[in-house]
């Protein structure tokens, strides 16, 4: 038999960026504990739709924890209470009958609310555009094996590259800082030999763009690392800092 539970939801509703939002209370009854969190919201939305109300807007796509599209703050925790889990991979068996669940959007000055739980994360794209790439045009690449990369370095780079860009680091940071996101990208590319030629310029321009976009400053609270669904480590932030100082003080171009 599947177990079912009854829940009270308090969901942030906000019609648009310029509107005022508020928490609205809904019931979610007979929720199977095998369901995912988003499937639970699907049911609430079906009921809202049939009752002539506006369903709750929330972002999602792959529902398998890799696209980085989903994400809300659930009872004060980004992506909910489970470690190493995106919201779409959070299952209802982690909740108990009678629970009240408060669901809020990511909150940061750099992420404007579009509607309800949906926020605009284009700031993260802008940061990547500022230098989160290696400048190689299609065509002239040498054989993949012409560059040897020690396995442990490749693994470290992969650890950093696993970032899904969901924004949970910003959402969970007490200061709404995006440094884990940027640190991960700068690290990945600084670790790999292919990324070294541009490492200095990249660090300077990505950090500059981050500052421009109004994210907060890291105060080493480690909440981002604890909340990151891909367990990206704050050692990447340290590496970014290192790259940044190195670039700022020893890179000959101004």
């Amino acid at each position: 038999m599947t177990k079912t539970i009854n829940l009270t939801l308090k969901v942030w509703r906000q019609k648009g960026p310029e509107h005022k939002g508020h928490l609205e209370t809904y019931r979610a009854d007979h929720i199977s504990t095998d369901m995912s969190f988003l499937e639970m919201i699907d049911i609430v939305n079906d009921n809202l739709t049939l009752d002539g109300d506006d369903p709750i807007a929330f972002d999602h796509d792959c529902r398998e924890g890799i696209c980085g599209m989903c994400g809300t703050v659930v009872n004060g925790r980004a992506h909910g209470p489970e470690k190493e889990t995106t919201l779409c991979q959070l299952h209802m068996r982690h909740f108990s009958d009678g629970d009240t669940i408060v669901i809020e959007p990511w909150r940061s000055r750099a992420f404007k609310i579009i509607k309800d739980l949906v926020v605009d994360r284009s700031a993260l794209d802008k940061i990547i555009a500022a230098g989160g790439y290696i400048s190689v045009n299609t065509g002239g690449a040498p054989d993949g094996n012409s560059i040897l990369i020690p396995q442990d370095i490749a693994e470290l780079a992969m650890d950093a590259a696993a970032c899904i860009g969901c924004g949970a680091c910003v959402a969970s940071c007490p200061n709404a800082s995006a440094m884990l996101f940027i640190g991960a990208k700068i690290s990945q590319l600084a670790l790999l030999p292919q990324g070294k030629p541009e490492a200095a310029g990249r660090a300077l321009s990505m950090v500059r763009e981050m500052d421009r976009l109004g994210f907060g400053n890291c105060t080493n609270e480690k909440e981002c690392e604890a909340e990151c669904p891909k367990e990206i480590s704050i050692t990447n932030i340290a590496r970014m800092n290192r790259e940044y100082f190195k670039a700022g003080y020893f890179f000959s171009k101004k």
Binding site: K10, W12, L23, V73, N75, G76, V102, E104, R107, S108, R109, A110, P174, N175, A176, S177, G214, F215, G216, N217, T219
Partner: peptide
């Protein structure tokens, strides 16, 4: 840092 999150979380 306070300015970076103008609207705070309820929980």
């Amino acid at each position: 840092n306070i300015m970076a999150r103008p609207v705070r979380y309820v929980v």
